[in-house]
């Protein structure tokens, strides 16, 4: 399949367990071993208690559509997903929010609503890169 979007670049060392997990269709999130805080994005210290002891937890891949937009043009020449498409901020059940796309929906603001339940869909782009996209839950 032709790659229709920019590949993540750079893929940083502190995010390796995240990218490794996605290749196995697991959405892994950083979790502070000291205070238990699950956070996004990966970094080497906990943004809540500032401990330097970070582990990983597998997300259930469920959450809500915290906010969204409908793209009517591409803003990056490597992004070739046909317009209109849904740009999404997802709030995962574990707490953190991520940016992604909402797929398998009609990209119509009248038919979308903040806080609807969503679930992860894994999209393999290359042998190295699988992205977490989201769709309405229970499809």
């Amino acid at each position: 399949m032709e790659i229709d979007r920019p590949l993540p670049n750079p893929m940083t060392p502190e995010a390796k367990p995240y990218w490794d997990g996605l290749r196995e269709q697991k959405l892994m999130l950083p979790r502070c071993n000291a205070c238990g805080h699950v956070f996004w994005y990966p970094r080497v210290a906990c943004p809540k208690c500032h401990a330097r002891d970070i582990g990983w937890v597998q997300s259930k891949g469920r959450g809500t559509l915290h906010s969204f937009e409908i793209g009517h043009q591409s803003f990056n020449k490597a992004f070739k997903v046909p317009v209109p498409y849904v740009l999404a901020m997802v709030e995962l059940a574990e707490g953190p929010r991520m940016l992604s796309n909402l797929i398998n929906v009609e990209p119509d603001p009248k038919k979308l609503k903040c806080d609807i339940p969503v679930e992860v869909v894994f999209q393999k782009l290359t042998d190295e890169v699988t992205l977490p996209l989201f769709q309405p839950a229970g499809r």
Partner: peptide, 9 residues
């Protein structure tokens, strides 16, 4: 580049 651009942001 890692967490936003791949989705069109």
């Amino acid at each position: 580049g890692q967490y936003e651009a791949p989705y069109g942001f």
